[in-house]
Design a protein around this nucleic acid. Structure first.
Length: 303
DNA sequence: AATCTTTCCAACCGCATCCCC
DNA sequence: GGGGGATGCGGTTGGAAAGAT
């Protein structure tokens, strides 16, 4: 049972570089009708190409939101950091770099960053989550950064507690969850956004591969390439208002603590392995100033 | 100026996953 | 539940451009 090839080679569909005329046909068609079914698109748009080729051309080159030009230092840093967590998951990395395509990032990694890292004597960094404790050389920096992270979390938690107040015994975990949920809708805090994205998900999956699964914090809707908003994870099950059985609440408490522990491990990991926090003393921070964050979260809380 | 080598990136290919019937 | 088509993803390739000799 062979699968039908995407492109019917016997029909002599065109391959190779796209001409400006073809580009125009494709852009005009998509702008007027949307891409719809990629398989049908070439015929409808009057192109002698296979749908796959059209999709690739559009997503990697013609899409209006594509950012052109060289990668900035910030983008390079992000790519290196994200590659350390997720490995060659180019689409995941691209999702964190607006305007950049997975193909572009992949090419950039293979032609520039890989070599650069090798030249620096770093060799090929092992893809996927790196294990281990924070290295001593970064301890002081990390402690400062971590305090900053925790301060921000507390701030977010405090501002969101108004909304959560109904569930009076709001544990730290559900508070963090609420804060994370709010924060991930605000591109301001990349850390919480990462935790709630595919990357955090990937971290959790890799960590839990070797031990019993931990409950997860509620995930934010994750944007996919096709702009369909999907929920990646089930929310952490918390007891309802009427549920006061001590066994259940005990179980919940343990689960929440585990979730919080997991989140803190991610903080450890991100701080040390990804160098996400270089603020104050290092002169670089992915976090916006505390005041901005506070203002943003207060806005959300009291809307 | 000519030729060879290296670099870069757009595009292809095949497998994996999703989704619908 | 599973079969098959559609789409997404990551690895690889081919050729143009740039640089070296």
């Amino acid at each position: 049972m062979g699968r039908t090839p995407c492109c019917d080679r016997t029909r002599g569909l065109k391959k190779g570089p796209w001409t400006p005329e073809e580009d125009k046909l494709l852009v005009d068609y998509i702008q007027a009708n949307g891409h719809g079914s990629w398989r049908l698109l070439p015929k409808l748009a009057g192109l002698n190409r296979c749908g796959k080729s059209c999709r690739l051309r559009w997503t990697n080159y013609l899409r209006p939101d594509i950012k052109r030009g060289p990668f900035t230092a910030e983008e390079q840093k992000s790519i290196v950091q994200l590659h350390a967590i997720v490995g060659n998951k180019w689409s995941m990395i691209a999702a964190q770099l607006p305007g950049r395509t997975d193909n572009e990032i992949k090419n950039y990694w293979n032609t520039h960053l890989k070599k650069q890292l090798r030249r620096m004597g770093l060799g090929e960094p092992p893809p996927g989550p790196a294990a281990g404790c924070p290295a001593a050389r970064h301890m002081a920096q990390w402690e400062t950064a971590r305090l900053e992270a925790e301060a921000r979390l507390s701030l977010l938690a405090a501002s969101s507690s108004g909304a959560i107040a109904a569930t009076t015994s709001a544990s730290s975990s559900s508070t963090v969850a609420g804060a994370a949920e709010k924060a991930c809708n605000k591109p301001a805090d990349i850390f919480l956004r990462l935790w709630s994205s595919d990357i955090g998900d990937s971290f959790r999956r890799n960590r839990t591969a070797s031990r019993p699964a931990l409950p997860t914090l509620p995930a934010a809707p994750v944007k996919r390439n096709d702009d369909a908003t999907i929920i990646k994870q089930e929310p952490l099950a918390l007891p309802g208002p009427g549920d006061d059985s001590s066994a259940a609440s005990n179980e919940t408490e343990v689960a929440e603590e585990a979730a919080l522990e997991e989140y803190h491990m991610f903080l450890d990991f991100a701080g040390e392995e990804l160098g996400l926090f270089h603020g104050r003393h290092g002169g670089f921070s992915l976090f916006p100033p505390l005041e901005v964050l506070a203002e943003a979260s207060l806005d959300t809380a009291f809307k």
